[in-house]
């Protein structure tokens, strides 16, 4: 019997790459800050998937990749909390959350 298709490193790498590319696309063309935040979450999901896949296929007898996936989840939670605070602050100041007009620090 042939090896099943989920027993292959490359298909998981392809999925992680697909998530990364979707995140880059959303990060570049979304107008609102929350859209950009959601795209960053996609990128972090792809990174966690890559960590677990490499742990499963290149060194299946320890748990370092799984631990770093847990760390990525913690970083994503902290980032979402901070971004929510910043979004509320920006909305109270500008009455909208479009990234185009927030340019006071640039001028």
């Amino acid at each position: 019997m042939a090896t099943p298709i989920y027993n292959n490193l490359y298909i998981f790498l392809f999925l992680g790459l697909f998530l990364l590319t979707c995140g880059i696309l959303g990060l570049l063309y979304r107008r609102t800050i929350i859209g950009m935040l959601i795209s960053i979450e996609l990128i972090m999901n792809g990174a966690g998937l890559n960590f677990v896949a490499f742990n499963r296929f290149t060194s299946p007898d320890n748990a370092f990749g799984l631990s770093f996936t847990l760390f990525i989840m913690g970083i994503a939670a902290a980032e979402a909390a901070i971004a929510m605070g910043i979004v509320i602050l920006i909305f109270r100041r500008y009455r909208h959350i479009e990234g185009r007009d927030i340019k006071e620090m640039k001028d």
Partner: peptide
């Protein structure tokens, strides 16, 4: 990795998406 799968559902689906939903509703 069943533990990571459960943590994925708990943290991402349970916490982070709810946080983003709150941000959408507040803004």
């Amino acid at each position: 990795a069943p533990f990571i799968a459960m943590m994925q559902i708990l943290i991402y689906v349970g916490a982070i998406s709810i946080l983003i939903a709150f941000a959408i509703m507040l803004a």
